[in-house]
Each structure stands twice: as C-alpha cells, then as structure tokens.
C-alpha cells in the first residue's frame, strides 16, 4: 500500500517539477511549482511526519508560492513572452543532484 502511494506521489511530484522547469508561461510554471510542494508535503505525511508536512503546505504554498505569484503579477506582461531553455540551470541542477548522491 505504502509503496504504491510512494510511486504515485513520486511520479506526480516529478512531473510537476518538470512542468515547472519547462512550461512556457511563467504563471503555469509557478502553479506547477506549488503542486510540487504539495507532493513533498505528501511525502512527509507518508513518512508519518504530519507536523512537518503541514508546515510544508503552510509555509511553501501559503507564503512562498503566493509570494512568487504576487511577484509575477506585479512585473510587466512581456516577461512571459519568451522563455528559452536554461542550460546553465540544468548544469547547476545536475551538479547539486550529484553532490546529494555522493
């Protein structure tokens, strides 16, 4: 039961994270980022750490995601026009992931 839940949540979280990194519209990316936070909170719940999971939802969706979204709202409209693929970001992500695996 738990491993099934783990796989489902993992797929959803990773898909949302990938969407946040690749979606063309900045707003969609921010919203899928919020879905990623929900997925991480679900992991905490799965591990039995209810309090941490709730704080994750509370802080990251209630504050961080709203802050990001508010920032997008207050910036100019043409920001969302072009959003090329960020190769330097990929390099940094791979480096961090490699550091974590080590």
């Amino acid at each position: 039961m738990n491993s099934v839940a783990f796989i489902v949540i993992a797929i959803l979280t990773l898909a949302a994270a990938l969407a946040a990194a690749t979606l063309q519209k900045l707003m969609h990316a921010a919203l899928s980022f919020a879905v990623t936070f929900v997925g991480i909170a679900a992991f905490f719940f799965l591990l039995g750490a209810e309090f941490v999971g709730l704080v994750q939802v509370f802080v990251y969706i209630g504050a961080v995601a709203v802050l990001i979204v508010f920032t997008i709202l207050l910036t100019r409209r043409d920001v969302e026009k072009e959003r090329g693929f960020n190769w330097s970001g990929v390099v940094v992500a791979i480096a961090v992931f490699g550091g974590l695996l080590k």
């Binding site: 919020a34 309090f51 709730l54 939802v57 969706i61 504050a63």
Partner: peptide
C-alpha cells in the same frame, strides 16, 4: 495547523 495550511491555499 491543518486548518490554516488548507486555508492558506485559498489565496492561490
């Protein structure tokens, strides 16, 4: 905490 965590999602 659950109440307020869920409630803060309303803003989004």
């Amino acid at each position: 905490l659950f109440f307020f965590a869920v409630g803060s999602t309303t803003e989004l």
